[in-house]
Write a protein that binds this DNA or RNA. Structure first.
Lengths: 189, 189
DNA sequence: CGCGGGTAGCTTCCAAGGAAGCTATATTGT
DNA sequence: ACAATATAGCTTCCTTGGAAGCTACCCGCG
């Protein structure tokens, strides 16, 4: 992406934080180099991406404290959310967590190896499998999710309640409208 | 992540779009399973992530039309933005695009193989390298970036100007405040 | 009954980055 | 001047996920 989007990435030695505002600086450079273009959308889209990545980095820190990656956390949370007996089919989990079934197989592999979930054949349909939280898995995700929510509260506390509400409204509206008429950009090159 | 966050991922057969609102549904499930927790932050953080991923998916479609991945697009854009003669050190590019130098090496490898950039030794410092856009590279990124901005305008058009302005303000404020006092969550377990 | 399409999960291969360490070179302190 | 340290870029290995295809199985229809 041109993106001013793309903030942090996670580990490594990526860039220092910019003084004024990285996005604004990038816009200024484009202004100079391509004065024929109106790059104002970057102010929103770029900042949205940077903020999302920043938040992801913060949230990931908590997952790590429980020995979980983002993917594993997602799966455990989906199982926990399902309610007792904390079971779901791999395909359901894939749909819920928005990854392919191939990715889900591997996530479950890791969680099974860690003793956090079990995998057994489904009773009715012999193609099917049932993934279930173990006791250790349930305890872990309960603890981790509690810490996760504490963390989200902490992050959101930087906004006043009205600001948070306004932000939520705008995000929901945009998403909804994209889903609505949202045909992708079809124009040729 | 628990995340309602994590929307689309890109390819594959990930989930269908939810009727009401995936995030709201997830919140309801947590409400039932963990009534002791206040999961309201998900309404903002989750939706932010879902929207960001949705936008990324849309933007990626345009990069693909030019045979570029997100990473390559970023590098070409950073070089183009630098102004004539469109040159930068790999380390600068890594910092600008927020990836490790290892990732940058590989991006440059791909772009060099595609004939879009060249790599030559720096004159003053014999450890250094200079990455430069080729003519083909400059032409491609100029075209691709034009299409990219068209695409961003299209996506942003779903918001009224005042909405976009308000969103930008909120995003900037949040990011700034996170950068400010933003110590990560240090609490143990 | 048994054939054929659809479905579920898994496997294999590939793409892209991060982490850490290597090499060559620059810089700094004494 | 020269040893110690820092820096630039690259390389290697590992992780994660997507793409596509495989196998087993279900189910409906002739």
């Amino acid at each position: 992406m041109e993106h001013p989007e793309h903030p942090d990435r996670r580990g490594g030695h990526p860039a220092p934080v910019d003084p004024v505002d990285h996005v604004a600086q990038i816009q200024a450079e484009w202004q100079r180099e391509r004065p024929d273009l109106d790059v104002s959308p970057q102010a929103v889209i770029g900042r949205l991406h940077r903020l999302a990545d920043r938040l992801t980095a913060e949230l990931t820190l908590v997952y790590q404290r429980y020995g979980l990656g983002e993917g594993e956390f997602d799966v455990l949370a989906a199982l926990r959310r399902a309610g007792a007996p904390y079971e779901r089919a791999p395909g359901e989990l894939a749909a819920h967590t928005m990854v392919t079934t191939g990715a889900m197989t591997k996530r479950i592999d890791r969680l099974e190896r860690a003793g956090l979930v079990t995998r057994r054949p489904a009773e009715d349909d012999r193609r099917g499998r049932v993934v279930a939280l173990t006791d250790a898995g349930r305890r872990l995700i309960d603890e981790a999710f509690t810490a996760h929510m504490r963390n989200e509260h902490r992050l959101l506390a930087h906004l006043a309640p009205e600001e948070a509400a306004a932000l939520q409204t705008l995000l929901t509206a945009w998403q909804t409208r994209l889903d609505g008429t949202g045909q992708p950009d079809r124009r040729a090159g």
